[in-house]
Design a protein around this nucleic acid. Structure first.
Lengths: 107, 107
DNA sequence: TCATAATATCAATATATCTTGATGTATTAT
DNA sequence: ATAATACATCAAGATATATTGATATTATGA
């Protein structure tokens, strides 16, 4: 029950839905890229990413000071179906601004 | 986006998950049956049932003063997958106490 | 009509979640 | 070592959601 609720509540926020859609569209990104792209405080993004990770949606690859977040793969049926729904929403996403491109970590 | 969030937030509560599991197990029930079975205030159940209905999970059949709530059928893929998850949780549910059996409405 | 029953809604409070700004930690560059 | 960068965490205030108790609405039955 708790695991399911954790998964569901991870979906229960507009910012997190947009983050999922964004990472689905652009692959692995680090927090500073998301910060640039979304124009949100880093602490805010960090918190939401943590919730999405604990909800089973994201993985993190650390490389030095960088933390690259991406969709966990494969997603189980429920999470995968959630992602399908999100894709169908046609959410307007901000343009990608990749800070880490210049001098960032080579995964 | 809003529709999806409404669906997700309908799932984002332990009481509502139990209600879904209970109605899945027992079919159409009226509020007073649920009240007896769950031992919760009627206003509380009524509110949760409304949220589940607005979230696209339940239908209501009115018959006189009775309101029979049951799972909407068919459920779309996401909601259906959510229900599958809930079934797999093996939630402990209260025993069914059917008040409406004696003198209740004949659907 | 009047009383009762089933359900829905509302206002107030309690509880949980989100956002912000500040601080902490670890890593890299000088 | 020192400074700067990337990220995580925390405390406080803001916002949203849940619960309760009271009241409203509608239908049935005497």
């Amino acid at each position: 029950m708790d695991v399911f609720l954790e998964t569901v509540s991870a979906l229960n926020d507009e910012t997190r839905i947009k983050l999922l859609a964004f990472l689905d569209a652009h692959g692995a990104l680090c927090v500073c890229d998301l910060q640039e792209s979304f124009g949100m405080l880093q602490s805010r993004l960090s918190r939401h990413l943590k919730i999405l990770k604990e909800g089973g949606f994201l993985r993190v690859d650390r490389c030095g000071t960088w933390a690259y977040y991406s969709l966990r793969c494969p997603l189980d049926r429920f999470r995968s179906e959630a992602l399908t729904e999100i894709r169908c929403l046609g959410i307007e996403l901000p343009p990608l601004k990749k800070l880490s491109e210049t001098g960032g970590c080579k995964l």
